[in-house]
Amino acid sequence: MSQDAVTPRYLPADWPLPEITAANRAFFTAGRLTLQRCRSCAQVQHPPHDICHHCQADTFDYVAASGLGTIDNVTIVHHAGDPRLADRVPYNVVIVTPDDHPDVRIVGNVVGADTVPVEIGAIEIGAPVRCVFTEVPDPDTGETLTLPQWELDQRDVARPVS
């Protein structure tokens, strides 16, 4: 499946969407996995921010990543903690490290048409994933947001995760 595959929103439609800023617009609207790179020192940092945490410069490029990644961490949430989630539990939250930027950690959800996994064993640390996107209109501006999400991928990977 290509990186621009579109998947329905994993969490309910009334669950909060991010506030879009100059720094995070590319990540949330590019429609492919996009990371922030400092124009001065060329370091990639995530989440994107107004200043570079390495050299404190404040101009950036936004670079495409392959969209292939590895599950670094996972939890299954069973208790809603908010009425908007009451009908959605259990749901998973994962941390993914992009294979081409292994020092970056991206929080998201594993999604999949026929596998909404509810057992922690179904999503294992070290499992390969591939980025897909949820398209949803910005509730304030109407701009199309593309939330990066993840599908379990069958490719072989040899990158161990400790």
């Binding site: 909060p16 969407l17 995070n24 949430v77 908010d82 939250v93």
Partner: peptide, 25 residues
């Protein structure tokens, strides 16, 4: 609980939309 209605900003923009909202998560 979470129970906030404002759109999450800063670091929370990369957590809350994916359900990493409550402290326990």
């Amino acid at each position: 609980r979470y129970n906030q209605t404002a759109r999450p900003a800063r670091g929370d923009a990369f957590l809350v939309p994916f359900g990493a909202a409550m402290p326990v998560v």
